[in-house]
Design a protein around this nucleic acid. Structure first.
Lengths: 238, 238
DNA sequence: TGTTGTACGGTTGTCTGATAACCTTATATG
DNA sequence: CATATAAGGTTATCAGACAACCGTACAACA
C-alpha cells in the first residue's frame, strides 16, 4: 500500500522566492519602470538574508530582463520592452483552453515553415526528413519512439527553412505541446490512427520534395487540422 | 564630429560569459543530458574565477532550464525538452540576414493574428485600436511617439485575438524588431512615407471592424509587405 | 538474510567580511 | 569657466567558513 502524503512545502530555493517577490513588486507597478531598487545591503537586511542570496535573486531578475544593474550605481527596474526572454510555465498548459491557444499559435508557424522549407530545403534536409519518417513507419504502435520521431520530423522541417528563428520558436512550441500531451496522455486515442498520421506526414514530405510551397502548406494545414481534431481541439484554420 | 570607435569588447558580466560557455558545452552535446557537471570548486578553478561567479553562472543556466541542481549532489544538464524559456540576444539582430529572418517569422503570426482578431475582438478592443491609431495620425512626423503608437497598435491586435500566446510571442518579436530598427535607425527613410503607413493601418482597422477574417488577413499581409519593402527586405509572402 | 541505524565524505546552499571596479557628486585648481 | 582631484556610495568579485543535504558503506540487530 502506498500512502498518499501531501507534499511538504519544501524550502525551495531562497533566492527564487525573493526574486519572485521583488519581481511581483515590479510587475504590479509598485516599483515603477526605471526606478532604482534598494541597495543590496538594504534588501539583505529587509529580507533577513545575506547579500549573496539577494545578489542571486537580482541576477535571476536580470536574466529575465526585469531589472538592469549598473556597477557603482544600482539596480533599476526596466520597462517591458527591454525584456529579452520569453518563457512558458509548464503548469499553464494543464488546462485545455491554454493548450488550445498554444496549438493555435503553432498552426500558422508550421504552415509557413512548410512553405519556406519547400523552397529552401537541401538534399541533405530531405534525407534527414526521410530518416525521421522511417522511424515512424517502422513502429507498429504509437510508442514513445514514434512520438520522438514525430517531433524530429517537424523539427527537421523547421530546420529546412534555413531560418534560425523558425527552428528556435517552432522547436520550443512543439516540445511544449508534445510534453503537455505526454503528461495528460491518453495514448489509447492515439494508437489506432497511426496509419492516418503517417500518411499525412508522407504527404507533407512529398509536397516538400516537389518544391511546391502551396502544396506543402496545404499538406501541413491538412495534417494539423487532422491532429487538432484527433486531440479534440476546435481551431479556426484559414 | 563623432568618432566611430569599434565597440570595445567590454568585460561585462563575467558570470554571463561563463554561463554561455557552459551552456554551449551542453547545447553542443559535449555534456550529455543528465550528465553531471563538474563541481563548483573545479569549475571555479578551471575558469580562474571565484566560486561566487560560477554559482551565478549556474544559477543563470538553471533559470534558462539548461541545468538542474540538487543540493548535496551536484548540477546536471537537463534534456532539451525541459527547457522552458526562449531568448534572443539583441546583438544577433545586428546583421541584416538575421533581422530579415525574424521579420519572416513575424509575418505569418501577424497575419494569423489579424484573422483571429477580426473574429474575436470586442468593442473595447476596437476602441483601444482607434486610440493607438489616433496617436499615429496626430503626429506630423514619424517620431518616437509614432513608433510607440505603431507598436501599441500591433500589440492591441495581438491582444484582440484573446489568445495569450499570440500576445506573448508577437509582443516579444515586434519589440525586438522595433528595437533593432531603432538602434540602426535611418529615420530619414521613414519620415516621408507616414501617410502610406497610416493608410495601411486604417485599412487593417476597418477590416477588423467588419469582422471579416479574410479581409483582415489581406490587409495585414499588404501592410507587412509594404513595411518589408520599405525596410529593404526581400521576403517571400504567400 | 534482510532491515535499520549511523558515521563519513562530498556537494550545494548560505553567511560573513574584505577588496576591486565603477559611478556620482562635490570641491579644489588653474 | 573648464578641468582635475578627492570622497563616498554601490555593485562586482574574491576568499573562507559553516550549514544542509545526499549517497554510500558499514555496523548492529532481528
Amino acid at each position: 500500500m502506498v500512502m498518499d502524503f501531501s507534499q511538504i512545502r519544501r524550502n525551495d530555493h531562497l533566492p527564487a522566492r525573493i526574486a519572485s517577490q521583488i519581481g511581483r513588486e515590479i510587475s504590479d507597478g509598485r516599483i515603477a519602470a526605471g526606478e532604482k531598487l534598494p541597495t543590496e545591503h538594504i534588501l539583505a537586511k529587509t529580507f533577513g538574508v545575506s547579500r549573496s542570496v539577494v545578489r542571486e535573486a537580482i541576477a535571476q531578475l536580470r536574466n529575465e530582463g526585469l531589472v538592469e544593474t549598473r556597477q557603482g550605481v544600482g539596480a533599476f527596474a526596466t520597462d517591458i520592452e527591454r525584456r529579452h526572454s520569453i518563457r512558458i510555465e509548464q503548469g499553464n498548459l494543464a488546462d485545455r483552453r491554454s493548450f488550445q491557444s498554444l496549438f493555435q499559435l503553432r498552426l500558422p508557424l508550421e504552415i509557413e515553415a512548410a512553405g519556406l522549407a519547400a523552397v529552401n530545403h537541401t538534399a541533405e534536409d530531405l534525407s534527414k526528413l526521410d530518416e525521421a519518417l522511417e522511424q515512424m513507419t517502422g513502429e507498429e504502435k504509437w510508442t514513445e519512439k514514434g512520438i520522438l520521431a514525430d517531433l524530429a520530423f517537424h523539427r527537421q522541417i523547421a530546420a529546412s527553412t534555413h531560418n534560425e528563428y523558425f527552428l528556435l520558436f517552432l522547436g520550443f512550441i512543439a516540445e511544449r505541446i508534445h510534453l503537455a500531451i505526454n503528461t495528460a496522455r491518453e495514448t489509447a486515442v492515439l494508437t489506432e490512427i497511426v496509419e492516418v498520421t503517417i500518411a499525412e506526414h508522407v504527404a507533407i514530405r512529398d509536397a516538400l520534395a516537389s518544391r511546391d510551397p502551396i502544396r506543402a502548406r496545404e499538406a501541413m494545414r491538412h495534417h494539423l487540422d487532422g491532429a487538432a481534431s484527433r486531440l479534440g481541439l476546435q481551431l479556426r484554420i484559414f
